[in-house]
Design a binder for these strands. Structure first.
Lengths: 182, 182, 182, 182
DNA sequence: GCATAAGCGAGACGGTACGTCCCGTCTTACA
DNA sequence: TGTAAGACGGGACGTACCGTCTCGCTTATGC
């Protein structure tokens, strides 16, 4: 939800709304043209902001993407049953913007430990913490379930370009059994 | 296993060994420096070949990578039990060169249908066909198992940068249950 | 008018008509697309001949072009007055194919002495010899007149892209005065 | 004399000296290796500048060459007699760097109207304007004289590779008679 | 009639340059 | 200190064309 808003002392304050506008632009463009097809110049332009401003707030394109994705995902729904957060996760992956962000970021993660760390902290951990707190599950199990759901669906997408309800259901089932049945 | 070796008639025949040398160079370099960090110029140079020669045989870096990967994977082992091909698959994904090729290709697949098609035909289909023929399983189930194993492991790698035996085992179990237990 | 037809002994004789067809193709293509825009592959293709065949007969694109140009120019007209060969020369330069061949060759000549030599022997010398023999003029004077006419007109073309009657006339006058009035 | 120095508002100003360094490098390299033998990479490297910087300031190699040439030529000398500017022009053409630039540009001009236009505006027009203003001559006559001098000398160079004093003198005479004697 | 010699079509190959693209950094002026 | 604007270095991309090469096949001559 944030760039790195801790800007305590002197100088001109940051212009409000810039963070949101940039994330919004990034989300739209990546949904339209994919991660690699989206330029930082393009994002800045659509957000009505200078490229410098973007780089002052985010270290790199990847880090902006992670922030955008985290913002987009929001929190898993509070509910009584275990099924709903997992189903929610699968539904999120089916959103074009989420999917294309994830695919791009998985690619970058291979090259850059800081991306991996950020991805864990901002994307997976909130989900895991939610299930651990809510249902008393073991964190490693939930992490694994997360990786199975997201990874399997993403990989299916990479293979076929689309994702049927049946696929999504099968994978959610599997993940549920994983955390539940052991 | 091949570029497009069907060169029936006239003209100077393709120099033997070039295909293998280029794939070899691609494999090594991608293992060393990752997919994105590997240049076609570099591959050509290490293979002792002109860049134009590479582009004459493969449409793009992605297509060369798929060919390299297919060559590298080879066929799943013939065995009596169902477990061994799935275990074999997980083991393959743990190989650095296979993994980095896969990660790069999953990224490209998002942008390019022809990459997806080739990926299905050259990478997943041989595996699926093997299990269908050998054990009489349903193709969609095996496809899904493939996507679960490869996707989940790749995603874990993207999140943590490494892959423990425990992770691999858990995922293989899951996939086995998937094809077996239904 | 010739490639290098002296092929005394054994072996399969050269196919008749190839020389003419290639020159014809070269002339047409260069007239259409300019010297630099014309590929040897293209010429060979239009002539219905393999590229190898072209290179067996001509050392390079430049040498083919010189041969084509010499063929195209033919001999200056026999006439009683001195004016007509010079007017003829100016008229030739105004032909698109001649002009574009010349422009291309002047460019190449800067790089390659063998092109210069060939250009002298095949293009300028026939003209000069004609005027020397016919009218008893001095060879250096005629050479200079040639360079003035061709050079000035070509340069005007390079500057404006076209050549009016007035321009052509003024330059022919000048050249005539040059050889005549001294 | 300049790239397109009109950079009125905002943004990082262009690094001073880059224009001059690039033109200098281009001049030297073209004098050494000819127009076609000179790469933009090479020019950029010798100028200590990235290739992209060169392309940001000049549309193409040709346009850089025109700019370099204009800079190199400077203005014709102010003098009392008509002879001196024409002699000066002939002397300039005999300079290796000027000559090789001109030869290359004449070749490019055939392919590209924008090169022709730039050549007229930056190279010929300053010369013509000078003679028109200074001696009240007619612009078309001076243009023609320019084309005769430069064209004839360049063409002689293309034919023989060198240029004697006698040649230069003969052509200057001719051009002088042209503007003077009518 | 069969060896020898060259021509030819087809297309692979090495090499070199091109002009474009995008990232992330920088340098100004102004707010 | 933030911001707009845009220059800059660096590096890869995929394309184009040249002139050479290597095959298999064809067509002549000379023994």
């Amino acid at each position: 939800m944030s760039d790195n808003s801790a800007r305590p002392r002197g100088g001109r304050p940051r212009r409000a709304g810039v963070g949101a506008a940039v994330r919004q632009a990034a989300e739209e463009l990546i949904a339209e043209r994919g991660y690699a097809g989206t330029t930082l110049d393009l994002i800045a332009q659509r957000a009505g902001v200078a490229k410098t401003t973007v780089y002052r707030r985010w270290r790199s394109k990847s880090h902006l993407a992670i922030d955008t994705l985290a913002d987009l995902l929001g929190d898993p729904p509070a509910g009584i049953d275990l099924l709903s957060p997992i189903t929610w996760l699968a539904a999120q992956v089916r959103e074009p913007s989420v999917r294309r962000l994830l695919v791009g970021l998985v690619g970058e993660a291979g090259q850059d430990e800081s991306v991996r760390a950020e991805l864990r902290a901002r994307i997976r951990e909130p989900f895991t913490r939610h299930l651990v707190d809510e249902f008393g599950l073991s964190a490693p199990d939930v992490d694994l379930a997360f990786d199975v759901v997201v990874g399997a669906l993403l990989h299916r997408l990479a293979m076929t370009g689309e994702l049927t309800d049946t696929d999504a259901l099968a994978v959610t089932d599997l993940a549920t059994r994983l955390v539940f049945g052991r």
